[in-house]
Computed example of a mutant assay.
Amino acid sequence: MLRRTIAISSGPTRLSVAHRQLVIDRQDQPRATVPIEDIGTVVVDHPAVTYTHDVLVSLADAGAGLVVCGQGHLPVAMLVATVGHGTQTARHIVQVDATPGLKRRLWGRIIRTKILLQADVAQQATGRDDGLAPLAARVKPGDPENLEAQAAQRYFKAVFGQGFRRRRDGATPNDLLNYGYAIMRSSVARAVVASSLAPALGLHHRHRNNPFCLADDLIEPFRPMIDRVVFDLCQAAGEVPEIDRRTKEALLSVLRHGVALSDGRRTPVDLAIRHAAASLGRSFEERKDLLILPASLPDPDLDLTAQAEEPDAP
Score class of each variant (00 low, 15 high):
255 L>A: 15
255 L>Y: 01
255 L>W: 03
255 L>P: 03
256 R>G: 09
256 R>D: 14
257 H>V: 13
257 H>Q: 15
257 H>Y: 13
257 H>T: 06
258 G>Y: 01
258 G>F: 11
259 V>Y: 03
259 V>C: 12
259 V>S: 07
260 A>K: 14
261 L>M: 15
261 L>V: 08
262 S>C: 13
262 S>R: 00
262 S>D: 14
263 D>F: 02
263 D>E: 11
263 D>K: 02
263 D>A: 02
264 G>S: 07
265 R>Y: 08
266 R>F: 12
266 R>V: 07
266 R>S: 13
266 R>T: 06
267 T>R: 00
267 T>H: 01
267 T>V: 04
268 P>N: 07
268 P>V: 01
269 V>L: 07
269 V>H: 07
269 V>E: 02
270 D>N: 13
271 L>W: 05
271 L>A: 10
271 L>R: 02
272 A>R: 07
273 I>Y: 08
273 I>L: 05
274 R>H: 04
274 R>S: 08
274 R>M: 09
274 R>Y: 02
276 A>L: 15
276 A>C: 14
278 A>C: 10
278 A>S: 09
279 S>N: 01
280 L>E: 00
280 L>N: 04
280 L>D: 00
281 G>T: 08
281 G>C: 06
282 R>Q: 13
282 R>M: 15
282 R>E: 09
282 R>A: 10
282 R>D: 12
283 S>M: 09
283 S>N: 04
283 S>K: 08
284 F>V: 12
284 F>T: 05
284 F>E: 06
285 E>L: 15
286 E>H: 14
286 E>M: 07
286 E>D: 14
286 E>V: 11
288 K>Q: 09
288 K>T: 14
288 K>F: 10
289 D>A: 02
289 D>T: 07
289 D>N: 12
290 L>H: 03
290 L>A: 06
291 L>M: 10
292 I>T: 08
293 L>R: 02
293 L>H: 00
293 L>S: 04
294 P>F: 00
295 A>V: 04
295 A>F: 05
296 S>L: 06
296 S>R: 02
296 S>P: 03
297 L>K: 01
297 L>T: 10
297 L>F: 10
298 P>D: 11
298 P>A: 06
299 D>I: 10
299 D>S: 13
299 D>R: 05
299 D>W: 11
301 D>K: 15
303 D>N: 15
304 L>N: 05
304 L>T: 00
305 T>E: 11
305 T>D: 09
305 T>Q: 11
305 T>I: 05
306 A>F: 10
306 A>H: 06
306 A>Y: 15
